[in-house]
Simulated assay, not measured.
Amino acid sequence: MVTQSKFEPMMSSTLLDAGARLTPHHYKIFSSQLQYQLVIGTVCKLQESGFYWGAISGKEANSLLSEEPVGTFLVRDSSDRRHFFALSIKTAFGPKNLRIQCDGNSFFLQADPRGSSTAPHFNCVLKLVHHYMPAKVADGKGGMCGVYFIHTGGEKIPLELLRPLSSSMSTLQHLCRKAVNGHLDMSDKRDLLPRPVKEFLEKYDSSI
């Protein structure tokens, strides 16, 4: 169960430019110019990720994940017009779908309705996904983030993001970029890189 966000209609998602267009069935209204820019930037990065499946439905996502190992996941457009994106995951109880909440300036999952803590917020869906992956998977450095539980149908299922389901073949350049992004000790050396290389890394600043 996911809490529905409320917002004032100000700008339609149909105004997205051709370089980062949400799919035609998407009717969510932007609440502000800031949210518009937030979603535009996120769509551009998701399109680079290789595990963004666009306008598939929850049923189609479940079918794709049904034969995959537990922990396999993908990001898609939400079929609910009140949300932009959804996270589909193969759990030990089968495929599950989570709406990704979006307020004026961040993305987040619904907070545990039985807990007192608030869910962390991120300025990009990729950062949200990275947060809920075990550190040894996301960065190759070991460690584990706090466990997030999916509450559905009376079940309490731990969210395990272990392996993205590829929607397209990644280029060798993109694979190299992800490898570089996974080494945090490189961050203080990026200023020494040629500008085209720096811009290429900044265009997709995730290791997943």
Rank of each mutant, 00 (worst) to 15 (best):
Q101V: 03
F107T: 02
G115Y: 03
N105G: 11
I89D: 03
R99E: 15
I100Y: 08
V125R: 06
M133N: 01
D112K: 11
F107W: 04
P134V: 04
T72K: 04
V125H: 12
D77W: 04
L126R: 12
F93I: 02
A111Y: 10
E67I: 08
D103F: 07
E68M: 15
M133R: 03
G104Q: 15
S106E: 02
A135I: 00
F93Y: 10
S88E: 08
R76M: 10
D103T: 07
Y132V: 00
H83T: 09
F107R: 01
S116F: 12
M133G: 00
C102H: 06
V129M: 07
N123D: 14
I100L: 11
N123G: 14
D103Y: 01
L109T: 00
F93Q: 12
L126V: 13
S78H: 05
D80E: 07
G71T: 14
N97G: 01
F108M: 02
S116T: 14
A119H: 08
E68R: 14
G104K: 13
R114M: 09
S78M: 01
V70F: 09
L109V: 00
F84Q: 01
F93P: 00
I100A: 02
T91Q: 04
C102A: 14
V70Y: 12
D77H: 14
A119K: 00
F73Y: 10
A92Q: 12
P113S: 11
